[in-house]
Structure formats: C-alpha cells, structure tokens
Computed example of a mutant assay.
Amino acid sequence: MSTAAGPEIWFYHLERSTLDQVLPGLLEKTRERGWRALVRASDARLLHDIDERLWTYRDESFLAHGRASDPHAERQPILLTESTENPNAAQALFIVDGAELGDTESLERCFIIFDGRDETSLQGARARWKTLKDGGANLAYWKQSPEGRWEKAA
C-alpha cells in the first residue's frame, strides 16, 4: 500500500548473485501480485541483454514482456525502457543501473538493484539512499544471506 511519502523503495544489494539471476524472480513475484512492471535502465545494451534473458532464463517458461519502443507498449505486463514515462501503468519499477527514478507517485513499489561488487554502483546506491531518506521516503534494504536467501537488513 502506498504511503503519503510515495511508494515503498526497496534496495537490493547484489553480492552473491547477478542481475540476470535475480531480476527474473523478482519480476515473477511482481506478476504474481497482479502488478505490471517497468524495468528502467539508462544503458540500451543492458536493456537488450535483459530482453534476451527474460525469454530464455528458464527452459520451461518465459516472462512476457516488451520494449517501450515496440507497438502496444501500454499492453505489456513487463516493459523495458530508458524513459522515465510509465506507458503500461506499472505498479512496480525496477531500476537496474542507476537510471533516474522519475515520478514515482503512481507506483506501489520501486526496486533499486545495485551491484555491491562495483564501487561506482555501490557509491551511487549509498548516495541515492541518503537523498531518499532525507526526503522522507519509505525505504528498505535487502541483502543476501550466505545461503543466498534475501533478508531485510534495514
């Protein structure tokens, strides 16, 4: 449920897993809630790689999705984009490379996924956390246990 301060903003600190391993599962959980998702990146090559991965990450299934530049983007349950717009009326936003959050008022939850093994990504996430916290955002921080389970740490 959204709060007056906007959506829940969850930071996912990748240490043991890669984006390719984590993102499909988070998108599946989002779809199980009945939510649409928007995956935003500032790097077109990364979006291309995510596009390919969502079709092939599991032998027996795929995650239906499209690109914002494709026809009927507004119909897609999962939309990949570089834009700060929300053409598919997504309730969940996934930031995967430090892209801008943009307007979050219509969202239920934002996921900021960052690679803790990359110093630039780590510093960017820390700065973003501080800015959002100072602005009164509803934040949570998730990290992986040694067994690979996600645990809420803050």
Rank of each mutant, 00 (worst) to 15 (best):
M1N: 04
S2E: 00
T3N: 14
A4F: 14
A5P: 07
G6W: 04
P7G: 06
I9H: 05
I9R: 07
W10D: 12
F11D: 01
F11G: 04
E15K: 13
S17D: 12
L19V: 00
L26C: 09
L27F: 06
E28V: 13
E28I: 10
T30M: 07
T30S: 14
R33G: 12
R33A: 13
R33D: 08
G34I: 04
W35K: 09
W35G: 01
A37P: 02
L38F: 01
R40H: 08
S42G: 15
D43S: 06
D43N: 10
A44S: 07
A44V: 10
R45Q: 13
L47M: 02
D49T: 11
E52Y: 00
E52K: 04
R53I: 05
W55Q: 03
T56F: 03
D59Q: 14
E60K: 13
E60V: 15
S61F: 07
F62W: 12
F62Q: 00
H65F: 00
G66Q: 12
A68H: 10
D70T: 12
A73V: 13
A73Y: 01
A73E: 09
I78Y: 05
L80W: 11
T81F: 07
E82L: 15
E85L: 11
E85H: 12
N88M: 04
N88V: 06
L93A: 00
L93C: 06
F94D: 08
V96G: 02
V96A: 04
V96Q: 08
A99F: 06
E100D: 08
L101K: 01
L101W: 03
L101M: 02
G102W: 03
D103I: 10
S106V: 13
S106R: 14
E108Q: 14
C110L: 10
F114R: 00
F114Y: 15
D115Q: 06
D115H: 09
G116E: 08
R117Q: 12
D118E: 13
D118R: 12
E119S: 12
E119T: 14
E119W: 09
T120L: 11
L122I: 07
Q123Y: 01
A127H: 08
A127L: 10
R128A: 08
R128L: 13
W129K: 06
K130N: 13
L132I: 02
L132P: 01
K133H: 12
K133Y: 04
D134W: 00
D134Q: 12
A137G: 04
L139N: 01
L139K: 07
W142M: 14
W142R: 05
K143F: 02
Q144G: 01
G148T: 03
G148Y: 06
W150M: 05
K152W: 02
K152P: 05
A153V: 08
A153T: 09
A153N: 10
